[in-house]
Design a protein around this nucleic acid. Structure first.
Lengths: 345, 345
DNA sequence: ACCTCTCATCGAAGCGTTTCGACGAAGCGC
DNA sequence: GCGCTTCGTCGAAACGCTTCGATGAGAGGT
């Protein structure tokens, strides 16, 4: 493999001149630059990444700490994809650090090895030990999601409040008054999983703002539990005409229970999936109306947010909240009016 | 950040002694080693990854070239996850190189930068320019999937032949004689996408071996097309009693068409999804019987296959084909016997 | 003709490791 | 008591780049 020394020799200049010709950090006479480029091309020269990083003290690598890419619904996959692409555009490489929330120590060690110029961390919890570790290590970082006190911490996240507000307004506008919310599991709320906690709060708030009684349930991420929870909701509020879900797997169970009770979607009950991954709506029949999570956008923003800290010249990217985007399906319609059940207390 | 020099000074030894104490490459008096470890711990020392790589000419990084993580079904996600974890176990980091099949040039450049000790490449096509580039660059690599001539190339892949054989035998054992296959799209076959090509061939072969007439269709990856293709199949072969699909999105359309024709699953038609991602079976009602792709296993194997090339001491991991695993659902049953349509010619 | 400035280039000192050869001190056989 | 290993440690030379200060050649002003 050719080194910069080989190029210098071939072009008849010094090593430093080649370096400057590559980086542009100092002016080089066009004619000389030509010779250098020709030599580089002839030798198939690519600068050694490690030597470059060592000398410049910048690895041009960012790390992504993630807990779980897989699972149904490519929402995390979409995000990772966008992060990798955006990083590449910016001339950075992306390394994956598959650490669970309890492996903060390992994160600290890796961070100290100087492999990454900055760290992206997804699925942060309200109180997240890993964030403390990153701050202690003085590695630039950006969160996807938010800790409880988001104050000065760089982050991007889904705007759960605005997403929920849009969802509820939309349904209320169609005449729905009895609206239920199917959330993620109790365990996730206990663990301080931001989306579950924040959207639960947002739901209650929106409903109350509309003068309606909030009815919400936690639900394990599975069609079976989704079905059970739907049964419970229908029994609890016989006047139910709309269900908002933030749990893709459970949503399949919601459909199953409604269908098996002979209730039509959206004739009898409207269903709206929020914070969904792309394409998931088309899997159901009738196609689920969704508000899909802006994974790709978040991914790009997260990278920008991180990189803006690395280069002091750029203006810092402020924390941003991105709402989910409504994707029309066929699972929402006007509320049926024949039930005439009084609003729940 | 503490360096090895700081540690050496603190422990009252030379830099090289610290290095040997860490790597174990030369014996160190226990007492000295203790002092060194104490100093390392006290200073929170972690060796600088870049310096280490530069000096040792091994980056302890492997790269994963992947085209598309996202999309419904976490089969790629499951794979990436497993790769990242296995790499970590082995003391390697994983970097993502998001390149499309036509970006072979960029792959060559990155490979020459020496950032990665080896490269994993997924979704290889039968004739894949990227493999030629990797071989020319003399970077160790392993494929997930196989080129046309798999001869001496390190790879792991799904065993489509055996998966299909199991699927067909299973159905034939239940009395099915009119079995159709729903494949990926025509475009993917044209592009030389291995799974589509290999399983199409396997299907024809298996059916013929059982003395049955193969009926197979390509199908775009969408519920809508899945539905259309199913309609076509039912019209083509009125005696159809089983459908094998290798197209998750299309499978939802298969269900929709069968259901809307009033055909019961599996009473009238059995459906078997092969090469599926985990959990996808539970999304349908009745739950789809699947043979799910061994993503995690492939991921681990792929890493082992690659790493065995990096360390000449280890025995090379031979190429392996892993069959999909049958996951019982409720979409398969005995063939109905009342149709009495003669086998298709 | 002299001094000063700018421009293009060079040489050398790092960056933080690994690794090779060397070296002194013991331990051994004779 | 002499040479020979063996053991534990050290010093220094890489690894391939970036970057700082220096230098020489012209250009420009006086």
């Amino acid at each position: 493999m050719a080194t910069i020394t080989d190029v210098a020799r071939a072009a008849g200049v010094s090593v430093s001149t080649v370096s400057y010709a590559i980086s542009g950090a100092r002016p080089i006479r066009p004619e000389t630059r030509e010779r250098i480029h020709a030599a580089m091309h002839r030798l198939g020269f690519q600068p050694n990444a490690m030597a470059r990083s060592l000398a410049s003290r910048r690895s041009r690598v960012i790390a992504l700490i993630y807990p779980q890419i897989g699972g149904i619904g490519g929402t995390a996959g979409e995000f990772v994809q966008a992060v990798a692409e955006r990083a590449r555009e910016a001339g950075y490489q992306l390394v994956l650090w598959p650490f669970r929330a309890d492996q903060a120590g390992e994160i600290r060690n890796l961070a100290r090895q100087g492999m990454a110029d900055g760290v992206l961390i997804m699925e942060v919890c309200l109180d997240d030990e890993r964030i403390d570790v990153l701050e202690a290590s003085e590695v630039p970082y950006a969160m996807i999601g938010r800790t409880r006190d988001v104050a000065e911490r760089p982050s991007v996240d889904i705007d759960f409040a605005s997403t929920m507000a849009t969802a509820i307004s939309h349904l209320v506008g169609l005449g729905h008054r009895h609206i239920a919310f199917v959330n993620h599991s109790e365990d996730q709320i206990t663990a301080g999983y931001g989306p579950a906690v924040r959207s639960a709060a947002a739901f209650d708030e929106c409903m109350t703002a509309h003068g309606l009684a909030p009815l919400s349930r936690t639900c394990d991420d599975s069609p079976v539990m989704g079905r059970a929870v739907t049964a419970d909701l229908l029994d609890t509020d016989p006047g139910l005409t709309a269900i908002v879900t933030m749990n893709e797997l459970a949503t399949f169970g919601v459909y199953a229970e409604l269908t098996s009770r002979g209730l039509s979607i959206p004739g009898d009950v409207s269903v709206l999936g929020i914070v969904t991954s792309p394409g998931v709506g088309t899997l159901s029949y009738p196609p689920l109306t969704t508000m899909h999570s802006p994974g790709a956008k978040l991914g790009r923003l997260a990278v920008d947010c991180l990189l803006s800290q690395l280069d002091p010249a750029t203006t810092p990217v402020p924390n941003q909240l991105i709402p989910c985007v409504l994707e029309p399906g066929m699972s929402i319609g006007p509320a049926r009016t024949d039930l005439d059940v009084p609003p729940r207390p």
